[in-house]
């Protein structure tokens, strides 16, 4: 039952990712990506990581994707953008990336053969994660917070000028 659920979610994740990356309309692609992320969240839950699953939904599928939505709305690419995307997705563009990605995948799978193991299925509770996070990993938390701060400042800086200019133009 659990295994069936796992493979189903994996299949959905793969399918949704593939569809997301081949869409011509950015908004559609975003929806598929969210589906993919939700499927991965299910996988996390099944593997006994409920905390990670929750974060995947809240932050990844929620906050980050919402950012994308905002930007797509601001840019307002429209129909001609879709036409252009379609034009760009012609078949011959697929060859080199496809071959390279396939080779890499093959290599990864080859590497996996050497590690026969199963998932334990033991759940790791949010409490354990929290204890570890603010115990041995507290320095990593600090670094992550600084990274986020830097991202905040950078995004503010980059985005503000864009907004100011647009207002002036208006």
């Amino acid at each position: 039952m659990m295994a069936t659920l796992f493979y189903l979610a994996a299949f959905i994740a793969l399918l949704a990712t593939g569809l997301a990356l081949t869409r011509t309309n950015a908004a559609h692609a975003l929806i598929y990506l969210i589906v993919s992320l939700l499927a991965v969240a299910v996988l996390f839950f099944l593997m006994g990581a409920p905390f990670a699953a929750a974060l995947e939904i809240v932050i990844y599928a929620g906050a980050i994707m919402v950012l994308f939505v905002f930007v797509i709305m601001m840019l307002n690419v429209g129909q001609e953008g879709i036409e252009r995307e379609r034009e760009w997705l012609s078949a011959r563009n697929w060859v080199v990336p496809g071959v390279l990605a396939a080779i890499l995948l093959l290599e990864l799978l080859l590497a996996l053969r050497a590690a026969p193991a199963t998932t334990s299925g033991v759940a790791v509770t949010p409490k354990e994660v929290g204890l570890a996070l603010f115990g041995p990993y507290v320095l990593a938390v600090e670094i992550a917070s600084m990274l986020l701060l830097a991202g905040l400042v950078g995004a503010y800086h980059l985005g503000r000028r864009f907004i100011v200019r647009r207002e002036r133009r208006r």
Binding site: A13, T17, L43, P50, L104, L109, P116, T119, G121
Partner: peptide, 26 residues
Amino acid sequence: MSGLQIPMEHVLALAGLLFSCGLMGL
């Protein structure tokens, strides 16, 4: 919430597949 017994390779293969998809998209 216990008892999910599937081979590690499958999970990691899935991760690899997803990674390759992203790479190809990039």
